[in-house]
Design a protein around this nucleic acid. Structure first.
Lengths: 211, 211
DNA sequence: CATGTGACTAAGCGCTTGCTTAGCATGTTG
DNA sequence: CAACATGCTAAGCAAGCGCTTAGTCACATG
């Protein structure tokens, strides 16, 4: 089950929710919500859309989730956590700042291409979150950007990177990856991995590394 | 009136609608729509929100615009046209590909920072457009990206640029600028012009130019 | 085999939505 | 000064919204 899910990429994989933690029905609802929120946007999606896509009556949704916003919260929180994990793993895996940054840029980009549906919700529906969920998620976003900045600072210190301004460069690196979720589509000719490799090169060059 | 509007930057300036072409009331409605669509999103904005912000009763909106979607269409069409004009001017102003690209990247970035409210609507509410408006706008977007790609191709031909893939590089350049409208805020410490200059350097480096 | 229990549906409630209608002042025109 | 156009408001309509209620059914437990 688990290894098959890993072999067969799926929007669900981008929400780090252990398979056993929710029932089949709740999982189906969450997947339907991801699809619908990503395609039409949170406010344009109705609870009837979600329930119908999950093969249930409108009322069944409320047995598994307390509200439409609760679905968004779960998607946003787990999606952000998965992204932060990815970024911190790229830093922790070691090597010099150039190696760390290549890994981070490649995987960050690949994630946002493969999981562009979840990515779209994570990055474009922040304003629709209940206030306390927004605060939690904002903290995760801060830590993602901090990690990127830390690697750039390290690279500037060793002389491997040269940038006009560290904060601006960190913004640019994360921004480039995030925006992939806006434009990437299944119809794109590049695979997520190809795109990741190419973006890895572009990012290193942007930071003034010799590539 | 007109020169004061030019001296005092305003969301309106990013919608290239000649001052005389609409009445005061219609202009107020359009501005209220820009503000509300950018802040809450198209679907979360009600016609009552817009009319009230423009100081009118809900019904008055329909004297000036045929529907809520007509407001979005006008914002999206004029916003896209303004962006295309900017990009084509940067190419036409001459110089070698490096000079053209620096100008394009700087002005494209500055535009998306200063006009981030309009930019947010232009780039994130495409799916809410009526079908025929979407088609018109998609054509403008294609021409924007084509212009960027043309300059990169010219630079690759002269040897000034080196990129892993021209289409991917063009995507990255436009994407970097577009995403500024998502995260830039009036509270940002960088001015739009500062950010433009820094992004200009990052973009040229990304394309393998010696900077 | 009575009594729960959990997952579900049919129906619908109260409210908000985009938009319309009817009417009212103001100003312009023959 | 009658006739009309313009720009607006008060009131409200049909449709759709998020969510609730009441009840059904399959199945587990004493």
């Amino acid at each position: 089950m688990t290894d098959q899910a890993a072999a067969d990429p799926h929007p669900w994989d981008h929400l780090e929710v252990p398979a056993g933690e929710r029932t089949e029905a709740a999982r189906r609802l969450l997947l339907a919500a991801v699809d619908s929120f990503a395609r039409r946007g949170y406010h344009a999606t109705t609870t009837r859309d979600i329930a119908t896509a999950a093969g249930m009556s409108p009322a069944a949704l409320y047995i598994h989730y307390s509200s439409k916003a609760a679905l968004l919260s779960e998607i946003s929180r787990t999606g952000h956590q998965a992204t932060l994990d990815l970024v911190e793993r790229a830093e922790a895996a070691g090597g010099d700042p150039v190696e760390q940054m290549r890994r981070l840029a490649e995987e960050f980009t690949t994630w946002h291409a493969r999981g562009h549906t979840v990515g779209r919700i994570v990055n474009h529906e922040l304003h629709a979150l209940p206030e306390e969920d927004f605060a939690a998620v904002a903290e995760l976003r801060r830590r993602i950007e901090d990690t990127v900045r830390r690697i750039i600072e390290a690279g500037v210190a060793t002389g491997a990177f040269t940038v006009p301004d560290v904060r601006t460069a960190a913004r640019a690196v994360t921004s480039l990856g995030i925006d992939v979720s806006r434009w990437y589509s299944e119809r794109s000719t590049e695979t997520p991995e190809e795109l990741g490799r190419r973006y890895g090169i572009l990012v290193l060059r942007m930071l003034g590394a010799a590539v």
